[in-house]
Amino acid sequence: MILTNIESVPGKKIIEHYGLVCGSTIRAKNAFKDLGAGFKNIFGGELKSYTALMEESRGQAIERMMQQAQALGANAIINVRFSTSNIAQGAAELYVYGTAIKTE
């Protein structure tokens, strides 16, 4: 599966469009990580556990989007966009969407 965030797959022709596909996941940090982040807020620096959590969650959202595209018979997704929203303290929704297409 090829993913791009531009309107085409460079070097390849688009044969068919399948429309919007999307994936989302909602994640909460655990209490220990929250506590660690609280300490970090005193000294400053990178919140490594938080970065890892977001990376992992984004991977899962992309995985779900790719499953949807595969079910449609697509082999690429173009114009992929990410969006994040904070739904509650310590929890975040990660949403990813794009257009499923078939290339040659």
Partner: peptide, 25 residues
Amino acid sequence: KNMLEERPIEKASLISGSAAISTDY
């Protein structure tokens, strides 16, 4: 989006990088 050169393309792929930085007291 359209700064491609007229050359054959091997592959194109989506990549991402992220970082979370906290404040200090």
